[in-house]
């Protein structure tokens, strides 16, 4: 009986496993192989060793993309976590109109990155948006043109992405906060511990699971960051807001340089694996709750 049910479980999972193996691992293997060839617009099988990787290593646009994704990733994850947690803590004070506020804060997440990018592009465009409003109000000194300044533009992407994701983090954190035993809060009140210390040293450590979930979700959206950059700046000004996924897409299609694109994709894969693997391992090692 037991063996039979296990067999049927395996049979039921087989198609999914097959798809995962062929579609994911197969495509991954193919991509890695192509990155060692001299493929241009169409895949070729002329092996050139690490040539694509060495030209990637000296490619300024790629280096800028990597630097950008590092800045973006760190700031975005940190800010989204802090802001999301603060929003959740705020709502957790049993404020009035809680469900309204929750919807308002979660709302940006329902929009695609394309819409988010376009909206922020208009807001930040110095001749259309916030800066123009300032000038129209007579504040001639007012300047907010980060979108068109190469050394600042990446921070505008962070701004838009945090606006987009903070609500989601809030929802995850709120669920975590609601899971905190009310007895703990009672004890905190009895001991007269200030609220900020209680949050920082008691509640946050209790919510490791929520944080891990949020970090993984945010990290995934960092790795695949593409559409926001396309919609908001299209990588500009110059190459100042280029990101790795956009590098891959542009070289794969528009530039007909499949070899270089797959080398970049492989590099991304290795990096993502190196960052995410320990994180997931850590999360799965958490004492698992007893299944029902």
């Amino acid at each position: 009986m037991r063996i039979g049910s296990r067999l049927s479980t395996h049979l039921a999972l087989a198609p999914a496993l097959l798809i995962a193996l062929v579609a994911y691992c197969g495509a991954m293997g193919w991509t890695i192989w192509i990155s060692f060839t001299n493929s241009r617009m169409l895949p070729s099988s002329v092996f050139v060793g690490l040539r694509q990787y060495s030209s990637l290593a000296t490619n300024e646009r790629w280096l800028t993309s990597v630097q950008n994704i590092a800045i973006f990733g760190l700031l975005f994850i940190a800010m989204a976590l802090v802001l999301g947690f603060m929003l959740a803590a705020l709502i957790d004070q049993r404020v009035r109109a809680e469900s309204l506020l929750r919807s308002v804060f979660l709302y940006p997440f329902s929009m695609s990155f394309i819409v988010t990018g376009l909206a922020w592009r208009w807001l930040l465009d110095p001749t259309l948006g916030i800066e123009k409003v300032g000038h129209d109000l007579g504040l001639a000194w007012f300047r907010f043109d980060w979108l068109v300044r190469p050394e600042r533009v990446i921070y505008t992407l962070v701004l838009a992405a945090v606006w987009h994701a903070a609500g989601l983090v809030m929802a995850i954190m709120l669920a975590g906060l609601r899971g905190v035993d009310p007895e703990i809060w009672k004890a905190v009140r009895v001991d007269g511990i200030p609220a900020w210390r209680a949050y920082l040293f008691i509640v946050v450590p209790l919510m490791r699971g929520s944080f891990a979930t949020a970090v993984i979700l945010l990290a995934v959206s960092v790795a695949r960051l593409y559409d926001l950059s396309v919609a908001m700046t299209n990588g500009g000004p110059g190459i100042a807001s280029e990101v790795p996924a956009k590098f891959v897409m542009d070289h794969l299609f528009e530039r007909g340089n499949v070899g270089l694109a797959t080398a970049a994709a492989t590099t991304m894969l290795i990096t993502v694996a190196a960052v995410l693997a320990p994180l997931m391992y850590w999360q799965y090692r958490q004492p698992a709750r007893r299944p029902l």
Binding site: R40, M41, N59, E60, R61, P150, G236, P237, G238, I239, A240, D250, H251, E254, R255, G256, N257, L260
Partner: peptide
């Protein structure tokens, strides 16, 4: 010029213009 070369030069032109 092939698109790959055009693109690589385009990156440089764009950088020169904006930076």
């Amino acid at each position: 010029s092939p698109p790959a070369l055009t693109g690589a030069i385009q990156d440089l032109i764009s950088q020169y213009w904006n930076d």
